[in-house]
Design a protein around this nucleic acid. Sequence first.
DNA 1: ATGGTCAACTTATCCGTACAAAAAATACGA
DNA 2: TCGTATTTTTTGTACGGATAAGTTGACCAT
Lengths: 368, 368
Amino acid sequence: METKYNIVKQAIMSKILDGTIRPNQKISSETELMNEFNVSRHTVRLAIGDLVTRGWLYRTQGAGTFCADRLHNESNTNSDSAKTIAIITTYISDYIFPSIIRGAEAYLSENGYHVTLFSTNNNHDDERKFLEKVISRQFDGVIVEPTRSAFSNPNIKYYLNLERLKIPYLMINAYYDELEPISLTMDDEKGGFLQTEHLIKQGHRNIVGFFKTDDIQGTKRMKGYLKAHRTYEVPLNPNHIITYNTAEKKDKPTEELRKLLAKNNQDTPTAIVCYNDELAINLLDVIRGMGLKVPDNISIVGYDDSFLSNVSEVKLTTVEHPKSEMGKAAGKVIIDLIKDKNKAEGKIESIVYEPKLIVRNSTKELKE
Amino acid sequence: METKYNIVKQAIMSKILDGTIRPNQKISSETELMNEFNVSRHTVRLAIGDLVTRGWLYRTQGAGTFCADRLHNESNTNSDSAKTIAIITTYISDYIFPSIIRGAEAYLSENGYHVTLFSTNNNHDDERKFLEKVISRQFDGVIVEPTRSAFSNPNIKYYLNLERLKIPYLMINAYYDELEPISLTMDDEKGGFLQTEHLIKQGHRNIVGFFKTDDIQGTKRMKGYLKAHRTYEVPLNPNHIITYNTAEKKDKPTEELRKLLAKNNQDTPTAIVCYNDELAINLLDVIRGMGLKVPDNISIVGYDDSFLSNVSEVKLTTVEHPKSEMGKAAGKVIIDLIKDKNKAEGKIESIVYEPKLIVRNSTKELKE
DNA sequence: ATGGTCAACTTATCCGTACAAAAAATACGA
DNA sequence: TCGTATTTTTTGTACGGATAAGTTGACCAT
């Protein structure tokens, strides 16, 4: 329902929830809002009136309209209601996320917490929507898997407001650089390094790398890929770095690989470093379709050690990802943060998981 | 304060309080009130709007304004508090469940509901624990994927209690026979029939069936498998029905298949009907390991049309499962149930999805 | 009977205007 | 500098008009 008064209402709500308007601070006058949103005063009053009855604002004739202070006093002491943790993730159903969620759910459930799920579909607007819910519904803690972490995040204010309101949160898989939050991540750069190093040590010199670059993981893995080339003094062909984003992930990498394998010149790669197993499986299909064999004609390395790595006739060489252990750890850390909320904060620190290469049979020594 | 809208408000309140207007009875329309009190429509709406937010009246566009039934509803006045749906599932992370959850989460989220997840790990004790939480925490609705649905359920009482407390619930994928709840399921018997029929029509006569029999789906699919044999008058080898339960799923089916393929007598099957794609992929590995080819040496049919069916070099012939559409439908039905809670229950009925065979290249005409 | 169409009615949203009442900001005089 | 009066700003009440959108029931054709 995109009614005008709803737009105004949402805009005001956002400012309350992201902390732009603090409790007891005056909001814009009705006239100012009229001009700002180009609506009539009646519409502004509808919006404000609704927020007043819901308890977000209060009005004083002659003085103005003010932000209510519902976050501090009120009924926060409902010790009866279960503690609830929000998990905000990009894609609930995709790939390794279910495993991470499972690990977190299992641990939190055992410890008397509930888990409420939100899926952003890699969309900053949805992320904002959910952060607003988390703040206004008083969740006890939030586990966030960042949305498009390689880009600057328009919702930073909301995270800062979480801190102001002492709602603990942590990030998994990646984190927004501006925030330096408590986070559970892999050393993705080293992961990318291990993938590439393995191939170099097997004699490969033409290694194409595919990286999804709208999240931090992809850019770090790419960094590791570059570093491996430098370390072993393997010259790098600029055409052998393929980057793509989430929207392109279905078609671009497969098309690019088709081109690379088709042109059949010196550039033709003998090995592929993949952003993750999912991509590796997709590329595997392309390779099959062109009548080539893995690992005989070409080697391929995945990432994450997901179920996908064992599912095909070719068992993928890949990099281990903690998955459900990471979920479990996230549950543990968030509970620690909640318990320590009022006490001395300290000790609780980010965890960086060391990547480990798992060698299977999608890679093979290159014979001249 | 003798403002005009206050006069109108008081007049309406009086009628409510002295019983002139009974619950759910329509009050005068805005136009009538305008004339009656000689005020503008705006003033009438102010008065009514106030009474609506206080919970004395409710409005329905097109129909009119009605007296609320405060005695029955009560706590519902808290319009700001989030509605929350609990999803109780066996395994959050496994296989097609993430897709179902995703569909439900997306729909419910769009409609302003939260989704809280519980995973029973196919354990009745955990199911009970979560049902207790759901009842005591006053969730607004529950979506249940039954745990060990083929067996009698020790938690029936809890479900009956849900009904008594008017907490809507529905079941997906399967249901406990004793309850006859609203449910969203596939016609699994027909699904099993389609799998088997397809192979029979391709000339196969030695078809081994693998069925997980601790849930209803497995037993129904097996029923369909048997029915297909009877319908097409194909004699059935009793050794060609392999049943297993969740605990055995890792090892028993693969071992049994190894035995069947090893003994190399007349019994050797030429085709396999699988409980689901996950099993099919596991069996595929066994077949590969024994140096056989799919579909040249042996045909195999999966079930669910999951991502697994497209992931290997052999693209599985399988049976379509609605997955995320089922999740979405579950969200829709549970919301309908919540909204209809106080009104006339009817209309809302279980959905049975028709299975459809998807033919890929894991099955092949049998040549003599 | 059954189902579909349409008109009448009702609430929902939105605009404009005007004046009243309260508070805050400013001007002014002692 | 301080207290008071005045002006300005801001919310509160109230009127008018217009179009949109949902509900209902009567009517009509099948």
